[in-house]
Design a protein around this nucleic acid. Sequence first.
DNA 1: CGCCGAGTTGAACTGAATCAAGAAACGTGG
DNA 2: CCACGTTTCTTGATTCAGTTCAACTCGGCG
Lengths: 187, 187
Amino acid sequence: MQSIIETFRQIGELSKKNEEALLRAIKRREYPPRTILQKQDKISDKIYFVEKGSARTYYYKEGKDITYWIALENDFVGSMSSFFMREPSNKIVETIESCILWDFEYEKLEALFSSNREMEKTGRLYANYAISLLEKRFDHLHFNSAKDRYEILINRQPEIIQRVPLGMIASYLGITQETLSRIRTQV
Amino acid sequence: MQSIIETFRQIGELSKKNEEALLRAIKRREYPPRTILQKQDKISDKIYFVEKGSARTYYYKEGKDITYWIALENDFVGSMSSFFMREPSNKIVETIESCILWDFEYEKLEALFSSNREMEKTGRLYANYAISLLEKRFDHLHFNSAKDRYEILINRQPEIIQRVPLGMIASYLGITQETLSRIRTQV
DNA sequence: CGCCGAGTTGAACTGAATCAAGAAACGTGG
DNA sequence: CCACGTTTCTTGATTCAGTTCAACTCGGCG
């Protein structure tokens, strides 16, 4: 329950009052594995913070299931561009393992941002932080070999291999499951 | 001179007063082609809005020059994650053609965001917009062939081919110059 | 003129995809 | 607690997109 507040604290300071307002605005809920949280082509009304478990966003490309994002504990998951830009989502969001998630509703979150300067600023800083994360991820994909990308991933999140099916990790890395399986035996 | 204001208007409404404050905070300057705007390993203090010309960010990977971002008119360029996260830049920023740029200084921009709610909110919304752009770009790189990526690019920005050297476009797309040259003859 | 950077073309090579078949692990119901 | 089917993972053979390295063309410019 503290972890979500701590995550926000890393980005920008929140007053006690705002921490409490934030906690009031969001809902903590449990979800079984493989629960669809967001359908394709529908505007996203929620993003989620993972307290426990794992979740992902994915889409279909030529019939194949392509994972875009995998979130373990203390990470956000959701169809971000749909959520923020209010356009239909090109991605599906689902839990992988059984999860405890904090639900952020669009209207409530906007209301929170609008309610005072500190929240508004925290929202801006968090968005900037997300940009830098995305930029780093893009760099990894840009000119690294499949093996390099795999090694970067397991150095950062070694437990992901035990918890997330190989096919999801493979498409997250931009390779096929067979290739990832082969890489894995080499290391 | 109007274009920068119009770009901001697309994201969030700004009052006349804030539009004026914004214009006072930024500087319009001319730069010759191939001017280094940002060195590697140095914290970025400026980002730039391109009024005229073209510019890019790039880095070296195993001695090779890899273009990460290309900005034509009405786009921003800069080492965003360095600028926002205040960490050393892993990228170099330079003009490609002769440019007219609007310089955004970090301190001034933060002061502007802090000066009032509307600016703060516009900053947040713009960051959200940037996230959705990055997400789309990532999707293109993720599971498309070199040819598909090239076609997406020329549909969106046909003039880029005439104005930016082929090698820069190639690495931007994540391929070698030779491959891009071959793709180009096929289309 | 001749040089120089930018782009093209060719041939050989290679990392990863594809297609196909098994093996292992997993969960559900009997 | 075992038997079954289903999903997940591995392994092999082949193909293919894209890289690499090298040579060559073209246009501009001192």
